[in-house]
């Protein structure tokens, strides 16, 4: 049994091993890029809209709504980052039911990379919104005594973000593999359907948590500002 797609090495180029993780990340990227290119080629405004355009518009509207509700800020600024995370994890988890496809999110390297992207995006968005000093001041709130815990929390939440996605995707794959050995008739298909649901759910949870972290790094100065417009929700 292979625990992670990192152990499947297809070929090596110099010092780099081309693993299943890398190959299927490319597959997911190709699926996303090609489908987006095909759909955006024939965008229309009049009523006979294409199915693809409706699907993509619904997806983007959904992500925009979630960003607006979680961060309570103008959602366009965070749309590229959040939607990229959501679509990549979603497509990768959903394609996991295709036989022969190893979800790249079932490898700790991919999820660690995604969590590191969130880890660096939080100060980037925070500095872009509050300025360097304003962002650094959020570490001293509500009191400088909490500084060590805040820094520790930044590190552990990144670890938890990576381990949660990895553990869930890998565990659903391993459950199916164990069931195939124990009761190979109907139950693996049921577990696959269950894994499909959890894959979508965890794409959603990863994106929402990333947005919650970004919101906590960008919105704290607004609470201290005098309540001009009734509560600081811009």
């Amino acid at each position: 049994m292979t625990l992670s797609p990192d152990e499947l090495v297809y070929f090596t180029v110099g010092p780099f091993a081309v693993t299943a993780t890398l190959v299927f990340t490319w597959v997911v990227m190709a699926v996303l890029v090609v489908s987006s290119a095909l759909v955006t080629r024939g965008l229309r405004v009049e009523p006979p809209l294409g199915r693809g355009q409706l699907l993509f518009e619904a997806l983007i509207a959904f992500v925009l709504d979630q960003i607006r509700e979680v961060t309570r800020q103008e959602p366009r600024r965070y749309l590229p980052f959040a939607a990229t995370l959501f679509l990549f994890i979603l497509v990768s988890n959903v394609l996991d039911v295709v036989p022969g496809f190893h979800a790249p999110t079932g490898s700790l390297t991919t999820t660690a990379a995604l969590a590191l992207a969130v880890f660096f995006a939080v100060p980037a968005f925070g500095i872009a919104r509050l300025g360097l000093l304003g962002y650094l001041r959020t570490y001293l709130e509500p009191t400088p005594l909490m500084l060590p815990f805040t820094v520790l929390g930044e590190l552990t939440r990144t670890l938890a973000l990576a381990m949660r996605l990895f553990g869930n995707v890998m565990s659903s794959g391993i459950l199916v593999a164990i069931l195939l050995a124990v009761a190979p008739f109907v139950f693996p298909a049921l577990m696959q359907a269950f894994g499909l649901f959890f894959g979508v759910l965890h794409a959603y949870i990863f994106t929402i948590l990333a947005l919650v972290y970004i919101a906590s790094g960008t919105a704290q100065a607004e609470k201290r500002a005098p309540a001009r417009n009734g509560g600081g929700h811009v």
Binding site: L3, Q66, A160, S171, I208
Partner: peptide
């Protein structure tokens, strides 16, 4: 809507400790 979204986030947080235990079990065996 708000309650279920917050519940999902909270469930994910709670589940993290269970996932840690599962990963440790897998490391111990495999």
């Amino acid at each position: 809507n708000t309650i279920s979204r917050t519940m999902f986030i909270g469930l994910a947080m709670v589940e993290t400790s269970g996932i840690y235990c599962f990963v440790i079990g897998l490391i111990l065996i495999f």
